[in-house]
């Protein structure tokens, strides 16, 4: 399974994502500069965290106009797996691949911590190896992770089972319905604020991110086998 990690000026979790794919899965993974627009040679895309374009205007707002996003949209439409982590999630919202928008944390502080999450949906290509409602620990590191959507969108997210991760305990940013991650209706696009690539070996404090990458590979292999 071939993974692409698009890199924008200001991305800073790109190497972590590449290492996670290499170390956890041993699958081929390539950094792709944001000026490229063709991602047809890849099976999955990981939009990494960081501060693309310095978070100018709004987080993720300017990255959505980079040429590579044409390739990301095409990959999503073709049913390939697209995951946006932290700043990558913010990009997916700005692009409209996922509903809602990101606001500044309600307490106005940057929050860096290991966070307890609930896997509220394990029937996705990204979470199939977790138990439904399993508690996992994944690091967060963001100042603008306060996911917001209106009541109608929230209802739709719940009706269509699109809320994949929720924060446990005290909500670290004030997000609507304690949302930490959501997917699209087709479930091949996931956005999440926590960083699974920072929870892959014991010394990181948690290995709960491993199964997210393994779930993606499992999905890829099953789909490849069927094709």
């Amino acid at each position: 399974m071939r993974f692409a990690v698009p890199i924008f000026p200001g991305s800073n979790c790109d190497i972590d994502c590449i290492k996670a794919v290499e170390d956890v899965l041993g699958e081929p993974v390539s950094p792709v500069w944001h000026q490229e627009s063709d991602l047809s040679g890849y099976d999955a895309v990981i939009l990494p965290g960081g501060f693309s374009y310095g978070d100018y205007l709004r987080s993720g707002a300017l990255a959505q106009f980079s040429p590579i996003m044409k390739g990301v949209v095409k990959a999503a439409q073709e049913g390939k797996l697209v995951i946006g982590i932290c700043n990558g999630f913010q990009m997916l919202l700005e692009m409209g691949l996922l509903p809602g928008a990101m606001l500044q944390n309600d307490h106005l502080k940057f929050r860096c911590d290991i966070q307890e999450l609930t896997v509220s949906l394990n029937e996705t290509p990204f979470t199939s190896l977790y138990e439904q409602n399993e508690s996992i620990r994944i690091p967060i590191a963001h100042g603008q992770g306060n996911y917001f959507c209106d009541d109608k969108t929230r209802q739709e997210l719940e009706e269509h089972d699109q809320i994949v991760f929720r924060y446990q305990g005290e909500n670290p940013n004030g997000s609507t319905a304690a949302i930490a991650g959501i997917c699209n209706r087709e479930r091949n696009v996931l956005g999440m604020m926590p960083h699974p690539e920072r929870a892959i070996v014991e010394w990181m404090g948690s290995v709960d991110g491993v199964r997210l990458f393994q779930s993606m590979l499992k999905h890829g292999e099953e789909n490849h086998g069927a094709a």
Partner: peptide
């Protein structure tokens, strides 16, 4: 398109 996000 750019300067505002109509969601918020």
């Amino acid at each position: 398109k750019v300067l505002s996000n109509p969601v918020i």
